[in-house]
Nucleic acid binder design. Structure first.
Lengths: 124, 124
DNA sequence: TTTCATAAATTACGAGTGTAGTTTATGGCA
DNA sequence: TGCCATAAACTACACTCGTAATTTATGAAA
C-alpha cells in the first residue's frame, strides 16, 4: 500500500517504461520531455519515491540506477480498486457499465471486450 | 474541476444519497453511521466542501440545508477519466480490459455488459 | 430576560505535496 | 594533485488534508 502522489506518478511512469533501470540524468530527461519541471524537482520526487519504497536506488554512489519496486500492474490494481470502492459501490461491473455507456469505444475495442467477456464466461 | 479529498468524499457520498438536502445533524448522523469521526471533523469537511463549491449551504442561519452542487455522475466522470489518463494511456478500453480480465464478474454482469456493448455497437 | 444548547466560524497542528534552492561530497579532467 | 561539474542530500515554504479543539453567536426554553 505505497501511496504515490500525482507528481510522483509522472516519474514512476517513466521508470515503468524502462524496467532495466535508469540513472538520474535519464530520468530527468525523460520526465522533462513531458513537462517543464526543474531538475531538482524531479530529483526530489525520485528521492521521495525511494524513501516510500516504491523505487530502489542501487549501484555505486553518484551513479545510482533507479528501478521501480511497485509494478505498474500492482499500482493500477490499487488505484482502480480504490476508485471502484469509493465511487462505484465496490462493484467493478458498475464501473464497466459506466464506461460502456458513455465512452466512445471503437468497433474493434468493442469486439475485443466482447471477446474478453466471452472468455471470462467460458472460465466459469 | 472541483477537487474532493478522500475524507470529503465520504461526506459527499451521504449528500448524494439525499438530494433533497440535509441539515447538519443529519449529515453528522449519517456519516457517523459509517465511521467514528468527531462531529467537528464532519462539520469541517462540510465547510470545506462549501468553500470549494462542491456543496451549497442554503436557508436560514443556524439551520442551513446542505445540497451537493457537484453531481455524483460528474464526479465519477472526473475521477474515472483522471485514472484512465494517468494509468491507462487515456484509453477507457484499456481500463475495461483490465477489469474484464481480472475481476470476477458474475454471469449476469457479463450478460449485462455484453448487452451494453451490443447497444454501443448498434449506435455506430 | 437570562441562560443554555448548539450551529457556525475560527484556529490548530502535524503529515504530505508541489515546487524548488542550497549545501556537500566526489569522480574525472586539466 | 587541485578544481570543477554535478549527483545526492538537505532545507524551504506555501498549500492541502485529516483530524479536531476552541470561540462566537443565537434561537429557544426557563
Amino acid at each position: 500500500m505505497v501511496t504515490i502522489s500525482g507528481a510522483e506518478l509522472v516519474v514512476m511512469t517513466e521508470l515503468w517504461k524502462r524496467p532495466e533501470g535508469l540513472m538520474t540524468p535519464e530520468v530527468v530527461a525523460l520526465v522533462r520531455d513531458g513537462c517543464e519541471w526543474d531538475e531538482n524537482t524531479i530529483k526530489t520526487l525520485l528521492t521521495r519515491l525511494v524513501k516510500k519504497g516504491a523505487v530502489e536506488a542501487s549501484g555505486p554512489k553518484r551513479a545510482y540506477v533507479y528501478r521501480p519496486l511497485v509494478t505498474k500492474d500492482d499500482y493500477r490494481e490499487e488505484a482502480a480498486s480504490s476508485l471502484v470502492r469509493q465511487l462505484f459501490n465496490a462493484d467493478p461491473a458498475q464501473l464497466m457499465c459506466f464506461f460502456a455507456e458513455r465512452s466512445k469505444l471503437s468497433k474493434s475495442e468493442i469486439a475485443q471486450l466482447k471477446d474478453l467477456l466471452n472468455k471470462a464466461e467460458a472460465e466459469k
